[in-house]
Simulated assay, not measured.
Amino acid sequence: MLKVSRPNVYELNLDLFYDYRNNVKLYPEWQRYMRELQPAVLVVWGKNDEYFPESGANAF
């Protein structure tokens, strides 16, 4: 269940979930960008994160 209370967040998340297939297609391009340019990134993640599992955090 989506746990957000801001206006329109539910609709925005539906759009994001629907378009996830295009997100995955771009992974190689994003991974290349990260490797080559190494931009500063702050990743906030919690062990019980429902949306970004531990395996994804470790891979990142």
Rank of each mutant, 00 (worst) to 15 (best):
E50K: 04
G56V: 04
P28D: 01
F17H: 07
F52W: 13
F60H: 15
E50V: 00
V41I: 15
L12P: 00
Q31N: 14
V24G: 00
N58L: 15
P7G: 03
V9E: 11
P7D: 09
Y10W: 07
V4K: 10
N48G: 00
P39K: 13
L2T: 06
E11Y: 12
M1E: 07
N13G: 03
P7R: 10
L26N: 13
R35K: 14
Y10F: 11
R32D: 12
P28N: 02
Y20F: 10
V41P: 05
E36G: 01
V24Y: 01
L42E: 12
P28H: 02
A40K: 15
N48S: 03
Y20C: 02
Y27D: 10
N22Q: 04
S55N: 10
V43N: 14
V43K: 15
D15K: 09
L12H: 05
F17C: 08
Y33T: 07
Y18R: 07
L14I: 13
N48Y: 02
N22L: 03
K47R: 09
R32L: 10
A59K: 13
W30P: 00
V4P: 01
V41L: 15
S5Q: 04
P7I: 11
E29L: 13
M34N: 13
Y10N: 04
P28A: 05
E36F: 02
E50F: 01
A40F: 15
Y51T: 04
R6E: 10
D15C: 04
E50W: 01
E29K: 12
V4N: 09
V41Y: 13
W30D: 02
R35N: 12
V44D: 11
N8H: 11
P53M: 02
A59V: 09
